[in-house]
């Protein structure tokens, strides 16, 4: 699997994502700067967490309109798998590659803690190494993770099985609708989630519940 990680001004989980990818793929991903307009020939693109462009206007809105995102959109439409974590999820909803929007946390507080996540589907390139119903412990760290979509959109997500992960055991940190923590696009080739699987790929730094996501990608791509 050949992987790329996009780096925006203000990204701060790009290195974590690169390390997690390398741990599963055995080789470092290509790091691509936001001002570039072309991507190398890759099977997977990761959009990391952070505070791209200082969260100005709306989280992810400026990054979604940067030159590299036009290329990411083209690759996604051609079937390349795309993962957005935290700010990366915000960027993907702002580009329209994923449905819905991410609002300010209902508590108005920055949430930085472990949450419990249920895997809603193992039928994707991202989750095939999990079983539906598995419950994972993965950290969140965000101020704007309150997933919102209108009633029709929510029905479409549920009917098509596009909810990838949900907060369970009363650990919803942000008030998101239906306890939604992560969603797929209709083809399940694009995934966005607020929790940080890349931070739990090594027992030494707190857990390994996120590792299977990267191993799933290697197995699939």
């Amino acid at each position: 699997m050949r992987a790329a990680v996009i780096v925006f001004p203000g990204s701060n989980c790009d290195r974590d994502l690169a390390v997690a990818l390398e741990r599963s793929t055995g080789k470092p991903p290509v790091m691509v700067w936001h001002g570039d307009s072309e991507l190398p020939d890759v099977d997977f693109i990761g959009i990391p967490g952070g505070f791209s462009y200082g969260d100005y206007l709306r989280c992810g809105a400026i990054a979604a309109n940067s030159p590299i995102m036009r290329a990411v959109k083209q690759k996604a439409e051609a079937g390349v798998a795309v993962l957005g974590v935290c700010n990366g999820f915000q960027v993907l909803v702002e580009t329209g590659l994923l449905p819905g929007a991410l609002l300010r946390n209902a508590s108005l507080k920055f949430a930085c803690r472990d949450v419990r996540l249920s895997v809603e589907s193992s039928d994707s390139v991202f989750t095939r190494r999990y079983n539906a119903g598995d419950v994972l412990t993965i950290p969140v760290a965000h101020h704007d993770g309150n997933y919102f979509i209108d009633d029709d959109g929510l029905k479409r997500l549920e009917d098509n099985g596009q909810v990838a992960f949900r907060y369970v055991e009363d650990t919803n940190p942000n008030g998101s609708l239906g306890n939604i923590a992560g969603v797929f696009d209709a083809k399940r080739r694009v995934l966005g989630l607020m929790p940080h699987p890349e931070r739990v790929t090594e027992a030494l730094v707190g857990g390994t519940d996120g590792k299977a996501l990267f191993d799933s990608l290697v197995e699939s791509l």
Binding site: L57, G100, A101, L103, F148, I149
Partner: peptide
């Protein structure tokens, strides 16, 4: 439509 507002919300 393109940038200043997010039509979803």
């Amino acid at each position: 439509a393109k940038l200043l507002a997010n039509p979803v919300i």
